[in-house]
């Protein structure tokens, strides 16, 4: 299978990329890992006139902590996240998700930022970022840097609020001192989309009560789903099995999965309930719990 013909450019600086986007952004797709984009081009679901390969840009692959955030830049691969000491010591939800994304070969190439920009409703990372209240940093020649809360960034399936003139340069999540997170994923085989995926993140105050809670669901709604009702139920309370079970029930009621080859809607709803309970318990079982 071959994509429609396109112009290919591989700039060496971010400024060049922003110039191209400013001039003809609406016909441009940015190529980072390409593990979703290239197959979509081959299937002719995507037919960009110009492909801008950003893999030659310097200083855009960092995973680092600064100014209260952990930042993951546009060229950080999934496997860089798997192997990152910063991630494993600072964010247990991201650390537990990375090994479940796609397969080992795709993880050598695909990027987290690309996955967020692509916003496949069955992708794992968007649920994680919804649970973590992440921010997306977009840059353009005219507008400079724009910081977008993840909930405003993810508009609908395969749709984001990234403008044609903008380059997504990084996704960042707030650092936390006490707490942790966890990702649960049911998949038929490695590399398949999730049948159900559940991301949870909890932070605790000095008295041990839950001060912040995040829950994101994958593959059980038309898009990745944040569950604010379940998060609100958790905040202010001491963690307990009973509380987690209640939150799990709320998440089960909030999702709206479809019956398909991966399972019936009824089955998936129940997996959501079981996974939310498990994931919340595991969130506090990690090194930072």
């Amino acid at each position: 299978m071959y994509p429609a013909a396109f112009d290919y450019v591989a700039p060496k600086t971010k400024e060049e990329v922003l110039d191209i986007l400013a001039e003809r952004g609406s016909e441009v797709k940015i190529l980072a890992g390409g593990q979703s984009l290239i197959p979509m081009m081959k299937l002719r679901f995507a037919t960009p006139g110009t492909l801008v390969d950003i893999n030659g840009l310097p200083d855009l692959d960092a995973i680092e902590s600064s100014n209260g955030y952990m930042r993951i830049q546009a060229l950080a691969r999934h496997n860089d996240i798997v192997n990152s000491d910063v991630v494993s010591s600072e964010n247990t939800l991201i650390a537990s998700t990375a090994p479940w994304v796609a397969d080992p070969l795709v993880r050598n190439r695909g990027t987290l930022c690309g996955s967020i920009a692509h916003h496949d409703p069955e992708g794992d990372w968007a649920s994680v970022m919804l649970a973590l209240d992440a921010e997306v940093v977009a840059e353009s020649r005219e507008g400079g840097e724009r910081v977008v809360p993840i909930q405003d960034f993810l508009v609908d399936m395969f749709a984001t609020s990234l403008q044609p003139s903008e380059l997504l340069t990084e996704v960042r999540v707030p650092r936390y001192s006490r707490g942790g997170g966890n990702y649960q994923k049911l998949e038929r085989k490695v590399g398949d989309y999730a049948t159900v995926g559940v991301a949870t993140h909890l932070e605790l105050d000095d008295a041990g009560a839950i001060s912040k809670a995040g829950i994101g669901l994958t593959s059980v709604y038309a898009h990745n789903l944040k569950v604010p009702e379940a998060e609100a139920l958790l905040v202010g309370n001491q963690p307990s099995e009973g509380l987690f079970a209640e939150a799990a029930q709320v998440a089960k009621n909030a999702c709206d999965p479809s019956s398909d080859v991966r399972g019936s809607a009824e089955y998936k709803r129940d997996v959501v309930r079981v996974f939310v309970e498990r994931s919340l318990a595991a969130s506090l079982a990690g090194p930072q719990g």
């Binding site: 290919y8 591989a10 190529l31 390409g34 290239i38 390969d53 893999n55 795709v106 190439r109």
Partner: peptide
């Protein structure tokens, strides 16, 4: 890496 998801120019 999987070479069906890379262009030769890359």
């Amino acid at each position: 890496m999987k070479t069906c998801a890379m262009f030769a120019v890359q």
